[in-house]
Design a protein around this nucleic acid. Structure first.
Lengths: 226, 226
DNA sequence: CGCAGATGTAAAGGAAACGTAAACAGTGGG
DNA sequence: CCCACTGTTTACGTTTCCTTTACATCTGCG
């Protein structure tokens, strides 16, 4: 049962996060300003910190910077208002692990939280079956369906999809895929990955030209969202 | 390593259960709606089903009822939200084995799971006999028949067929077969497996050129479907 | 807008996997 | 020793699908 520290000055937002996380089984600690957040970050040793960028007095960026300065590697997710996109780069540079732009759905936040906690705990699922949208995949049986109709996936496509799902909500680099799905000793000099991504999209996406599940992150790789 | 099927539409709850069970060493399959849950319940033959009562379209109660209607005696634990206490009686009447009210601690759930699995631990061992289509096999006696006529299977063919049947509906890799049916320390550099598959097909399939029971999954292995 | 690098995607060889027959090898019985 | 039987390897034709290539399109940036 992970502990979450929410640093947020807006009472209604704080209450919403509190309720949401508690419903999901997390233990929540709440700080209304940066100084308190900083203190609780070291005192309560949370597994994760949700940090609003806009805070009275001490900004979330300062809090983040100070936490890292103290040598605390706890995962941090930043909340930014729309139009503060600049903060993305700055925040990530300062040591945040992810950021979410307000307004956001709680599900979206939870997806990131889970991805980050999964990453932090180093546990990889080894998923045997998965379902997203109208697609279901059973890796053990080597079967996939969309709208309950069989999908004809090749072996490579299965492995690629499995890897993406096991790293869902994370950006996966091409050479990471070449490493794991193929057995290349690193060599991003081929377009093979892109090729297979395209084939996969054609099979599992409703509109392959506007993919919802396998999205490309320019200059970084691909990300599965399901 | 028992298999658990989680039927839950809420992604974060599903993820929490998934992580928890995997941490405890269980193999987890996940369905996001009742129809999929129903299908996976029969296809993956889980040792236990965690079933949310509140599901889109088909309610957990309906899923439970249908599973029992299909004659599947798998233990089922229902998840109900607080205030749905009525469901307890209904659920248990419909054939659920236990129920847990949300929110709940994972420890509490695990205690019930273990209790139920201990109770239902009439674990299935190595298969002794099996029947599919017009073929029947008795591994204990070492006898096989097709259309009621004796089939002449060699010892190796028996072991191969037994392994395939014990893993029916799953894709079995060649090196897994070499490991289990032969005693090779892994070395897919031989065509022996393919050879024996061909021989088996010639004996048990109606049309060996278009096999229905032992199908090949390109680049992955073979799959028995009975 | 225009450029450079990155990505989408269709088409085309070509490599790898597979089915199968036939040769080869080991074993036990008469 | 020969034979029957089983299991393994080899060889080759066929099928599958992986990779490469080529070009169109897009993105980020000045």
């Amino acid at each position: 049962m992970p502990k979450v520290l929410v640093v947020e000055d807006d009472p209604s937002m704080a209450a919403a996060l509190n309720d949401g996380f508690e419903y999901e089984g997390y233990t929540v600690t709440h700080a209304k300003d940066g100084a308190t957040g900083l203190r609780l970050a070291s005192e309560t040793a949370p597994d994760l910190i949700i940090l609003d960028v806009m805070l009275p007095k001490m900004s979330g960026l300062d809090v983040c910077r100070q936490i890292r300065k103290d040598g605390n590697p706890v995962p941090i997710i930043m909340l930014t208002a729309r139009g503060q996109e600049i903060d993305k780069v700055v925040g990530l540079k300062l040591g945040a692990d992810d950021y979410v732009t307000k307004p956001f759905g709680f599900m979206e936040l939870m997806a990131r939280v889970e991805a980050i906690l999964r990453r932090a705990s180093g546990r990889r699922a080894g998923i045997e079956a998965y379902q997203f949208g109208d697609v279901s995949v059973d890796f053990k049986k080597g079967e996939a369906r969309k709208k309950n109709k069989p999908l004809d996936l090749s072996a490579r496509e299965f492995r690629l999809l499995q890897y993406l799902i096991e790293h869902r909500e994370e950006v996966v680099a091409r050479d990471a895929l070449l490493d794991s799905v193929w057995d290349y000793d690193s060599a991003p000099l081929t377009r093979t990955v892109d090729m297979h991504i395209a084939k996969l999209r054609k099979k599992i996406e409703d509109d392959p030209a506007d993919p919802r599940h396998i999205v490309t992150v320019h200059r970084m790789g691909y990300k599965f969202t399901g």
